[in-house]
């Protein structure tokens, strides 16, 4: 109160001095019309330049000689095997990372243990390390000069320059996606629901299936989609470990580069367009999920 009283005279004097320059009321969190237009135009121009233009270029290049030529390029034996390898890698890497991501998020969000901060950082490692380095690490681990490589080879298992190497590299690069998506969600939800289920006699598995999993299903799907998008599009790490054996260890992104380097532009862009199409489908699915997810969330109160 004493402070208020002391402030009053000076505040009055200030407002009197500025009386001529009183500004009309405006929504305090909004901008004036010219500023709005400028900001929106800037954003739109930027989006057009870095997103829509390249996407348009990919499709227009692919269709430069007509749809038939593009389809023919995709129907090529090497291209088809690249598509099937890409899908195979995704089909292996995504479920693996789904299981790993759920397990890691479960451990980090629901339990206290020593080294938790370290584990969290470790999960982020593939995000911060360049994919090329990730690939080189596998060369060191499984290459001819390593300990593991010759041992595995003597058992008839070829890792490098073969499908297992491609899968391993992809798993490494994509493994944070699911865990990263789930950790904040599960931390927010806490352990109350699980304790309730256990107190009602549910076993650990029952609690997971009937309580934890339904609680995280939207976040999990979202993480899986992101993981899938990255698994199909990964170039750097795969490029290092694959050996680029045509029709054997070449995935779609590698196939695009090979075709491009051979000046076979139509084929390169046709495969690129197909890859972009897969990514777009993923994004549309993601957008749909987000809508459902946010609707679910809007109904959920803070606790």
């Amino acid at each position: 109160m004493a402070v208020d009283a002391a402030m009053k005279p000076s505040a009055l004097a200030l407002s009197a001095a500025k009386e001529e320059r009183v500004r009309p009321f405006r929504d305090p969190t909004s901008e004036s019309l010219p500023v709005k237009i400028l900001l929106i135009a800037l954003a739109a121009a930027f989006l057009a330049l870095v997103l829509f233009l390249p996407l348009y270029a990919v499709f227009s290049e692919a269709l430069r000689k007509g749809l038939d030529a593009a389809l023919l390029a995709i129907a090529d034996h090497d291209a088809l095997s690249a598509v099937s390898l890409t899908l195979l890698v995704a089909v292996i890497a995504v479920p693996f990372n789904l299981v790993f991501g759920v397990a890691a998020a479960w451990a980090i969000a629901k339990f206290e243990f020593k080294g938790k901060a370290f584990l969290t950082t470790l999960i982020d490692l593939p995000f911060s390390v360049s994919p090329v380095i990730a690939g080189l690490v596998y060369i060191l681990l499984f290459g001819a000069g390593s300990f593991l490589g010759p041992v595995l080879e003597s058992w008839g298992a070829q890792v490098l320059f073969a499908v297992p190497g491609v899968v391993l590299a992809t798993i490494f690069v994509t493994f944070p996606f699911v865990a990263r998506e789930l950790i904040p969600l599960m931390q927010h939800q806490g352990t109350g629901d699980e304790e309730a289920a256990l107190s009602l006699g549910a076993s650990g598995w029952q609690t997971f299936w009937y309580v934890t999993l339904p609680n995280i299903k939207w976040g999990l799907l979202y993480g899986v989609l992101l993981c899938n998008a990255r698994a199909m599009g990964e170039f750097g790490a795969v490029s290092v470990v694959s050996g680029r054996l045509r029709g054997e260890t070449v995935t779609m992104p590698l196939q695009v580069e090979i075709l491009y380097n051979e000046y076979n532009y139509v084929a390169a862009f046709a495969v690129a367009a197909l890859l972009a199409l897969l990514a777009l489908v993923t994004l549309v699915l993601k957008a749909l999920l987000e809508r459902v997810y946010s609707r679910d969330h809007a109904l959920t109160p803070g606790h």
Binding site: G192, E195, A196, A197, Y210, T300
Partner: peptide, 9 residues
Amino acid sequence: FQHYALFRH
């Protein structure tokens, strides 16, 4: 539980 912990789904 204090915050009910009902299964929301």
